[in-house]
Design a protein around this nucleic acid. Structure first.
Length: 430
RNA sequence: GGAGAGAUGGUAGAGCGGUUGAAUACACCAGUCUUGAAAACUGGCAGCGGCUUAACGUCGCUCGCGGGUUCGAAUCCCGCUCUCUCCGCCA
């Protein structure tokens, strides 16, 4: 959530926060209507509030006088009668002010995060900036198959039966694929917890509405989430939701920052609005596994920790010896809540293209303000923390990358060295 | 699923219709003392939002959440959520 007080602040020297934010909206390709609406609504809210509070102050004052009279054993009936009438109008004024407040909050919840200045301005993913490329996006010396072809030939991916049992965009992993999926999860969690200093976590896979608002999925993206009918429960679209809300409404100690968690969870996404895209294979599923990296940071450290977190995600690809590139997302492609975001894209020889396998974002205080996560600076007033997260990595897409990059001409697939210990020493799927 | 108990500030824990935004303790901050630290002592110390500020100040809201009763609610009533104990069921 954007800080309305900052939006109202007058410019001192340079451009005002309002001007900068307006530019962010334009760069994101979003409408500025909501911004101007929220400003005027907030003005109205303050007027109504002042009015209601003045009346309320009078009420409190007279109530005190009544108490004094009663204590002194004097008669207060005329005052009480008078107050009876005032109480009614106070209630009305308070209600109107409360409504104005809700309206302002509701609009604020739909406004995206302000972008950092280094985020390139652009319209689509074509305008993302390549930061670096690691490994070679090479062609295989034979005709490379796409992952679903490999998987079906080996009999380890079954899309058809998943369609029968559940529906489109679900898959059975079978035999070596199931084992490989499990090995990847184990490998990711070990790497991040033992070498990168993250505390391991397995969160609830179902969360309530407040948590979804806290991380920014709601209210704008309700349709992307699966809801459990008749309850206030939702299937998590990412472990980011439960893990970020772990500290919702809490005040952390400054010396406890940063706090780093790596969380395994399945992720459930309705993929509303992506009909017809990536319909084949494992790329875009309603359910997939992911290991998420999540950091609660001191504002002064968040930038540095963002770089660190991204490099931790990259380490997975380095260990698996998969070629990839790091992209700095442009204003038109970056997510709603992020102030800055790197995507890692892995090379897929079968598809002949790079595909996103991790997204590492710095949310600054955007989520912290929504979820009310603060820390207390040495003796001072509570301040919002910065939250960061990134995939470390998406497991299903890593499985794709392994299948495609390690495929052999005879249709078998070699197992990356780093994974062999997790596959009981197996070196090949055939 | 049934029965009961509870939810108060950073933490623990009083208060159960009228200057109680809240005793007390711990934690924390500042100071005195000390070579330094500890101890002791003194003082300070909730959050959020208005108005107004250079600073001070002032008003309102908040005792799990939402309603109600009342001139007035942490305190009484209703609903919800969560936690704990016991019984039942269950991986």
């Amino acid at each position: 959530m954007i800080d309305i007080k900052l939006l109202e602040k007058k410019a001192e020297g340079g451009p005002s926060y309002y001007d900068e934010y307006k530019q962010t909206l334009l760069n994101r390709g979003a409408s500025v209507d909501a911004l101007d609406l929220v400003m005027s609504q907030n003005k109205k809210r303050k007027e109504l509030m002042t009015q209601a509070e003045t009346a309320k102050a009078n009420q409190n004052k007279v109530s005190g006088e009544i108490a004094q009279l009663k204590k002194a054993g004097k008669d207060a009936t005329s005052l009480i009668e008078e107050m009876g009438k005032l109480a009614v109008s106070v209630r009305e004024m308070e209600q109107t002010a409360a409504e104005a407040e809700i309206e302002v909050t509701n609009i604020l919840l739909t406004l995206p995060n302000k972008l950092r200045p280094e985020v390139p301005v652009g319209k689509s993913e074509n305008d993302n900036k390549e930061v670096k490329t690691v490994g070679e996006a090479k062609k295989l010396p034979f005709k490379a198959m796409e992952h679903w072809e490999i998987g079906e030939k080996l009999g380890i991916l079954d899309f058809e039966r998943a369609g029968k049992v559940t529906g489109a965009r679900f898959t059975f992993l079978k035999g070596a694929a199931a084992q490989l999926e499990r090995a990847l999860i184990q490998f990711f969690m070990d790497l991040h917890s033992e070498k990168h200093g993250y505390t391991e976590m397995i969160p609830p896979f179902i969360v309530n509405t407040a948590s979804c608002v806290g991380t920014g999925q709601f209210p704008k993206f309700v349709d992307d989430v699966f809801h459990l009918t008749g309850t206030d429960y939702h299937l998590i679209p990412t472990a980011e939701v439960p893990v970020t809300n772990y500290y919702a409404n809490e005040i952390l100690k400054e010396e406890d920052l940063p706090q780093k968690f790596c969380a395994y969870s399945p992720c459930f996404r309705s993929e509303a609005g992506s009909h017809g895209r990536d319909t084949k294979g494992l790329i875009r599923q309603h359910q997939f596994n992911k290991v998420e990296l999540m950091v609660f940071a001191h504002p002064s450290q968040s930038d540095e920790l963002h770089e660190q977190l991204t490099s931790h995600a990259e380490q997975v690809l380095l260990d698996l010896e998969l070629p990839f590139r790091r992209m700095l997302l442009c204003s038109g492609d970056i997510g709603f809540g992020a102030a800055k975001c790197y995507d890692l894209e892995v090379w897929l020889p079968g598809a002949g293209s790079y595909r996103e396998i991790s997204s590492c974002s710095n949310f600054e205080d955007f989520q912290a303000r929504r979820a009310n996560i603060r820390f207390r600076p040495n003796g001072g007033k509570p301040q919002f923390v910065h939250t960061l997260n990134g995939s470390g990595l998406a497991v299903g897409r890593t499985l794709i990358a392994v299948l495609e990059n390690y495929q052999q001409e005879d249709g078998s697939v070699l197992i990356p060295k780093a994974l062999q210990p997790y596959m009981n020493g197996k070196t090949k799927i055939s």
